[in-house]
Design a protein around this nucleic acid. Structure first.
Lengths: 134, 134, 134, 134
DNA sequence: GTGGTCTAGACCACC
DNA sequence: GTGGTCTAGACCACG
């Protein structure tokens, strides 16, 4: 699993960590039973405060994505009922769209705004289900 | 111009406002020279504090999107050099992708993570240009 | 007299106008009895609101720099007791300093901060007399 | 670092604060990595509202002068690319000029106008580079 | 304990 | 009437 953290993004580090673990689970890069790095090791590797890694792990546990087993570490949960499987086919849809938008000259921020706008339209039309961060 | 604000999203209201104004400018809903609502009026319409609207306007001015004329109001800048034109064709690309992803059962958050992942891949490949919020 | 106005400077237009008239008087470009342009004409020439020109003239009159004679126009005052004569020699001192600073790579803002710092030091030492804008 | 604020100057407090921090950075009184006082402490020391200090810090961050690290404090940026080094030699140029002008009887305001005039002349001659506040 | 956001309301400055 | 500043204080988010 590749972890890309951006210190100066303004997005909380613990949230960046959570999002990347979730995405890895969704794509199958991380599977039920897989062990995650220890808090201490991850904090060291990513040069961040162990409290921050701990918070990410704690909230991932709260969401049922991982299990914290005292004394032995953090593991991807066995039951991942609510997790959608993001297939390669599905990834290809986004990849293709992004490539066309970048080719059209759009920046990442502009693409994000486009996406948010589409999601907002669907939300207004009540066609979109599930937990939303906004 | 449609303004959709989400009080419970956790995203600062002034940022939501900024993003929506930027998107309106990118799609051409707002054009150079157009006058924006006054701070007080917008605050009243959106049921928020005038200081919060003022902060959004002030930061949009810093970014060169709008111009604040003391005593006369807020206007879209005449020179919008860095603004990409988001055409209907470009919007259709995103709309189509989102519709397929929603049909595949993905939630908004999952779609956002997919997008972030694609952008991160391109960023690593140094193919993506322009200001990024992360 | 050359008038240089900067619409986007953030400095009030009426103040810019006042400063330039004062400087012209100090250097002798404008002398006692000289007639200033009418409010209407100046507003037209500089593409600004006549109220703004009127305010500048009103405050210059308040400071005793000019006299407003109803029906005939604005004139530089006959008695300019408090006005320091800025000789060419004095101007040369500043010119030489600025040229050396610009040659050293400083921007206008940096030079202004240098000046403010020097003035503050003198002010603290109580060696500087006279009205200060700060 | 010496901070001189003038409550009655008409110049916004947050701007005065920004200018002084910038000058301290330019002269080397503050260096990359140095921690600034916390918002609350500075507000207390200067007898002003924490929000006002926060605004100064926020705008200095926008300009890339400082870095705000959530939960740990404010620090001078590591990369200060655009900052000119104001050496003692350069300071001496301004000091000497100001002393001669004060000796000639000029007030601070008159000296400021002299400077602005010189800068305007150079600007017109397109010899002056860099960000200008006007 | 750090910075960040938001509200409420007063008062000022500009056009 | 417009935007701009400042204060006061509550509450949240981060490390």
């Amino acid at each position: 699993m590749i972890l890309r953290l951006n210190q100066s993004s303004g997005i909380p580090l613990y949230l960046q960590l959570m999002e990347q673990v979730k995405h890895a689970v969704e794509t199958g890069a991380l599977r039920s039973g897989d062990q995650l790095p220890t808090i201490r090791k991850l904090a060291e590797d990513l040069v961040m405060n162990p409290n921050t890694v701990a918070r990410a792990y704690r909230e991932l546990e709260h969401e049922g994505i991982i299990e914290l087993r005292h004394g032995s570490g953090a593991f991807i949960s066995e039951s991942l009922a609510g997790v959608t499987k993001v297939t390669r086919k599905v990834q290809a849809v986004m990849q293709s769209a992004v490539e066309r938008l970048v080719a059209a000259g759009l920046t990442g921020d502009e693409i994000r705004r486009l996406l948010e706008n589409e999601l907002a339209v669907l939300r207004d039309a009540k066609r979109l289900q599930g937990a939303e961060h906004e």
